[in-house]
Design a protein around this nucleic acid. Sequence first.
DNA 1: ACCATTTTCGACTATTAGTCGGTTTTTTTT
DNA 2: AAAAAAAACCGACTAATAGTCGAAAATGGT
Lengths: 212, 212
Amino acid sequence: MKKGERRKQELLDIAYRMFISKGYENTSIDDIINEAGIAKGTYYYYFKSKEQTLEAVIEMMIEKETEAAVSILDSDMPALQKMVAIIASIRPEPEEQPIEGALMRPENIIMHQRIKQKLVEKVVPLLSKVVEEGMEQGIFSCDYIPERVRMMLILSNELFDEGSFTDRDIDVFIDITEKLLGAQKNSMDFIRHLIAAPAPSDVQTANAEDKR
Amino acid sequence: MKKGERRKQELLDIAYRMFISKGYENTSIDDIINEAGIAKGTYYYYFKSKEQTLEAVIEMMIEKETEAAVSILDSDMPALQKMVAIIASIRPEPEEQPIEGALMRPENIIMHQRIKQKLVEKVVPLLSKVVEEGMEQGIFSCDYIPERVRMMLILSNELFDEGSFTDRDIDVFIDITEKLLGAQKNSMDFIRHLIAAPAPSDVQTANAEDKR
DNA sequence: ACCATTTTCGACTATTAGTCGGTTTTTTTT
DNA sequence: AAAAAAAACCGACTAATAGTCGAAAATGGT
């Protein structure tokens, strides 16, 4: 009952790596089992189908990405800072960025799409909590919070996940986010640093800046 | 030089119908050629690959859907009315709605995604023109028009293409669209009629809060 | 009638997801 | 420790399917 779990995790890790690097469609079961050094039957002892493997892999990714967000939520920073931190935490890590933007390549649309969908699903309640806190702190002012948060996330996903966005996109996105949540003009300028910046660290400074 | 064109169109029509009704993934080349009564080789004489067939089918759909929009643009209604008409014209026809919401089913994500993407690409310039006209008419007031229009379309696609949206979603979408384009409060309520049929429009309360 | 071009054919290959009955390994029971 | 049961594993096999290829048939101009 223990060995099985380890094996399943091993297969999951391999699948994860291969899906990311070569894409879901371009990864065959044979690829996976060769890498793992096991037989076909063993693979299907652990997974009902390739499809289901994808499901599990995505589940795993989302889990990993949201657990950081949850701990941020439970901390006691001010709402805006939480927002910064959470949004930063759900941006895909560089290692997860498949080579040559493979995630955006046509053959990987499925995986990409699913990840986005699940991520939104998971993050909406978290960010909604933050917005509620922000309302108490007088930073935000709006109704229908989950719906608004969801739209914000959808927009951010669709606009910025693919590499091709402009400064104008960012400007408009900030503008609309502020209006969406009823925030002060320019109060959400920190978003700029979360998106475009090739600079690695500096998540802390984001908050420092918007108190002008 | 004539027969070929007809045949290609015929295959395209068959592929279109089958992709829509059974989904892209669930339609095999054999399905198509059986329906058409031709041999494998003939099919591949006209199409390089299944993938490329999908490309052509989508091209065809988009073309059909946008040509109506273009003629609306060229007419001389007031801007708001044009907007209504164009948005209405790009909503998928019932016949194109695959059975049982097949377009949203996982196996059809690819096709669905591509259609949305291409449609946005095509419609952004058209609606941008309308918004420009609307600005001259004093209805809208904003900068970065194409970016804003694009966001509006992305949101509408992601929110309303799948069946699962609420009245709240519509309310927030209207609110945000007005703010996005700098339109008068409630001036874009007509969107409600373009999206959902069932609900009576009494749920006006959404924006009552943030009037300041 | 002849040739070139276009169109058509269908058998064949290659890849791949998934199945199945049996074998080995591990754990539990006696 | 032996036997039984359960878990983990094996790999040959099936079925589906995208795509290839060389040859045959239709077409059209001269």
